[in-house]
Design a protein around this nucleic acid. Structure first.
Lengths: 160, 160
DNA sequence: ATATCACATTAGATTTAGTCTAGCCTGCTC
DNA sequence: GAGCAGGCTAGACTAAATCTAATGTGATAT
């Protein structure tokens, strides 16, 4: 990835291209796979100890606000980040919490009228299940958090 | 909401109907609007101080695992919970972080082959934008965290 | 060249959200 | 009526993220 590209995309979003900001962005680009903020901080800080934790978080916030980076919240775990490149959806593993990209396809807009006074900015699809590694390994290897382990449909037929 | 219904759905999911568990479930049913764990704890504990924080979290975990309750992770904020009743999607407000239900409609499955060795349990659509209240009030009222403001055109200044 | 100003950065303290620990309680079974 | 399992509790603890107050940086104005 050409350093000029990063600089340009930062600047065209109104962000100054500081060494720290550049490093965070570069790390995200060259390491797809949705790292957590802690992983990003650790990597960037190891490469150049001039980048502190607060700066990493600040820069992530700025990059997300500028629309260059996407944040993915995962139940019971740290958030994960990826560069907003080609459009894609996300797959979240119930077991290990990893986030993977899924091929893009269009999501139908919500039906007329269901939006009310709300303003719609984005629709995204989240897929859930087991990632390839966890699906294969079968046995448990780190399940701990609030997650639905029962198939979706087998409960609550509630009439209201 | 008939207390018998709650007891029955707990028991048919293999969960004993304890007073604390019942209270958490009842609160979620009678107060739709996706409260956070802290709100649930506060309400349930105020109504009956015999329910501790740990118990609230334990019960939420159990209810989610049993498939009676759904957890919604929100970027930069506490998770929110709702009873899994009628199928619906979720709308998350960029500004205040609230979660609202959206009318259900079918989501197309991921295209053939894009799943690989993964196991799919669920597809859900998340809508993002501004909730009715925030869309109207325009001015800022509590934005603080990593959130995307790109296409949002309304530049909220953090800190004042 | 220097004062100024806005933006960036830092170390470390703090807050928030959630989990863990160790012990007690309750109600069933033998 | 002892044993046991699941459930509960207060409060200590942890992880993730944010805040604070001070310092650095570099562009522009004087």
């Amino acid at each position: 990835m050409n350093p000029g590209t990063i600089r340009k995309s930062l600047e065209s979003s109104g962000l100054r291209c500081t060494p720290q900001r550049f490093a965070v962005m570069a790390f995200l680009m060259e390491r797809p796979g949705h790292p957590t903020a802690a992983e990003i901080f650790e990597a960037v800080n190891r490469a150049d100890p001039r980048c502190s934790r607060a700066t990493t978080y600040n820069n992530l916030r700025d990059l997300v606000q500028a629309g260059l980076v996407r944040e993915v919240a995962v139940e019971g775990r740290a958030a994960r980040f990826d560069v907003k490149g080609l459009r894609h959806h996300h797959f979240i593993c119930d077991r290990c919490g990893c986030v993977e990209d899924m091929e893009w396809y269009d999501v139908p807009r919500p039906p007329r009228g269901s939006l009310g006074k709300r303003t719609l900015r984005q629709c995204e699809v989240i897929f859930r299940g087991l990632c390839a590694k966890c699906a294969v390994s079968g046995a448990d290897s780190g399940v701990r958090s609030l997650r639905s382990s029962v198939e979706e449909h087998l409960h609550v037929q509630r009439r209201d």
